[in-house]
Design a protein around this nucleic acid. Structure first.
Lengths: 203, 203, 203, 203
DNA sequence: CATGAATGAGCCTTCATTCAT
DNA sequence: AATGAATGAAGGCTCATTCAT
């Protein structure tokens, strides 16, 4: 904020960001266990010690990254939910935002949908549960709006419908990605939407 | 001669089974990377070298385990698909069999649904893909039967419907399990069934 | 010796021989440390336990093999030395016998010439030294005969000449073999003979 | 700036040297397979991980050591060959340099003369062959000079004479050393020289 | 005699983490 | 803030050897 700070070539924040980006790329490419601090530091173009100056541990770095990514996804989804759109189109955009996230951050996507990675600390799980709950509430909110507006059934528990929704989305998302096929996100979204709205029953 | 054999206290097969069970438990509890051969050997009550007598590597052991479990699941699902039941009840049993499997073998369930674990050999991935395809074909068969019988919609691609089905099931299955909540499998099955058949649309 | 013994399909000696042959092949192909008891047992077509019935340890087996091979080589050389041939022809045959041995048993050849393998017991070294001395004495005897017959110089210490002789032979032998070139043993022998007899000096 | 650097107590290079020395001692004492990374690290007074900071593997370390030692030996021999000395004295110094090397680095000497160690990577063998060829060429050059100068016979193939020379030298060198006798290198050199120049023939 | 399952010490290597500079 | 050398616990795996059958 001071004039002096602005003269720095590498304001601290910039280094932290570089590390975060490198971590995203590396974790994304290799997964948590295969990604090493050495790889991440190299990718970021800094020394290993520097990574430890900004993050106390590998887990801390991973958590930081997750927080970062999930916050973005959450913001996107929230934007959709709070926008003044009619329920079904809103649902479509909602699914689209999810799939888009999965297609960009496949491994992180998996983590979100499965609830974590083995062998991490309780703190990690706590954070994950917090996020899980936040997303759940958003899902429920989306469904509730639709029910209130008369677009969705009111004979089912909103929470359950929300759960199925997130289930389908994350499953399709991560499965697709692992097929390494180039997915047509829009088409996939429409498919999910159709099934989720009307079911596969012939009547 | 055969009678004599039965008197053996520890036929080799028994040891292999002990190891397989220990592996199931350990991989299930810790995940692939956190599970160590030492832990598995201890759990099985044998020396580390013994594990390597039956399996050439950690990956080989894991693959053996996976093959074992997936073969069982596949057999169960196949039984359902080929049984002379009406489509919707058949679908219910199908979902039930999946959820039952997930609730027993949570980590293996994840692997099946998400397609793998980072850092393993190409052979592993090849095997996984083979299984994935086998299950896919079974799912499609189930849907096709329903469509033919007039129970399911015929305006959607069978493969797509099958994909959504397996997506919902595996997502619900593994998500639930990670919540560590005691799940009412029957209830969960009915929920999925309802949504999948009729959709959440109010009409 | 008894009639009963002769009826056996596999007299003990036969099994022992099979193992010895397998050991020769395996040690020869892989060297001492790379050769495993498993490989040897497989090559011999017997169970690992059987190898341990005839030989108390890997080292013991190796020693047995060495004794076997060296005894044969020794017998051949002795035959040459004690035969009634004129000194220079005798020397030629002597070198030939050495090179022939090296070309057949490259690894054992190395062991003989360099005096052993690291990491074995004192007993092993003791045996090796015994053999070394035996061969040395034979070499000296050969040289002495030639000196006495007036064919070789008498102004040099016989022991030293013998040492140089064995040096040249073993070095040429093993070096050649490692080149993996098909060696013309006869030609090589003549070359060594020429240099060893007349030197390379121009006068 | 450079002055400042010199104040460092432990410049990285020093650690690498400590490890190289420890490796030389340990490989020399135990041979390649018996020498363990643990022993080497202990001998060097560093942690095992530190060895891996400087060398990517045991083989890499061994190769580094070999390269180091052979480069020195080669430099010494080259000095002799290119010096303006008369052929026979040159030959004497050449032999002396070889024996001196063998007496200091017995195991490495063996490796040079025998052409390798079992069970290493193709890269290792390739390097060894390169060195072998370099030394061969030097040997041939030495002989050629002597022939040109009229000091050595011209009725024999230079390459063959060179081969016998290196054979005698390495054999005598390594054999002697293994006897663990204190060798009089000068005397040994003269012996080899005499035999190699004049032969043992009485005429 | 022969088998082969079982053992366990020990090896090479990896990698998250620390710390002097 | 940043570096990178140094650490050491831990992991997967090998293989000589034993022993109940």
């Amino acid at each position: 904020m001071t004039a002096q700070r602005d003269l720095c070539h590498n304001p601290p924040e910039e280094t932290k960001l570089k590390i975060l980006e490198a971590a995203a790329k590396t974790f994304g490419e290799y997964g948590y266990h295969q990604a090493t601090m050495t790889k991440i530091a190299e990718e970021a173009g800094v020394a290993k010690g520097t990574v430890y100056w900004y993050f106390t541990s590998k887990e801390d770095l991973f958590l930081g990254l997750l927080d970062n990514s999930l916050a973005k996804l959450y913001a996107n989804l929230e934007l959709v939910v709070t926008s003044p759109t009619e329920p079904i189109e809103k649902l479509r955009r909602f699914i689209l935002a999810y799939l888009d996230f999965f297609s960009r951050q496949s491994h992180l996507g998996q983590i979100l949908s499965r609830g974590g990675i083995e062998g991490l600390s309780p703190e990690f799980y706590h954070k994950m549960i917090e996020w899980h709950d936040k997303f759940d509430r958003l899902n429920v909110e989306l469904i509730s709006q639709g029910v209130k507006a008369g677009a969705f059934r009111n004979d089912l528990d909103n929470k359950h419908m929300a759960k199925v929704l997130s289930g389908v989305v994350s499953a399709i998302g991560s499965t697709q990605i692992l097929n390494l096929a180039e997915i047509d996100i829009e088409a996939e979204t429409d498919l999910i939407l159709t099934v989720f709205l009307d079911g596969i029953s012939s009547k």
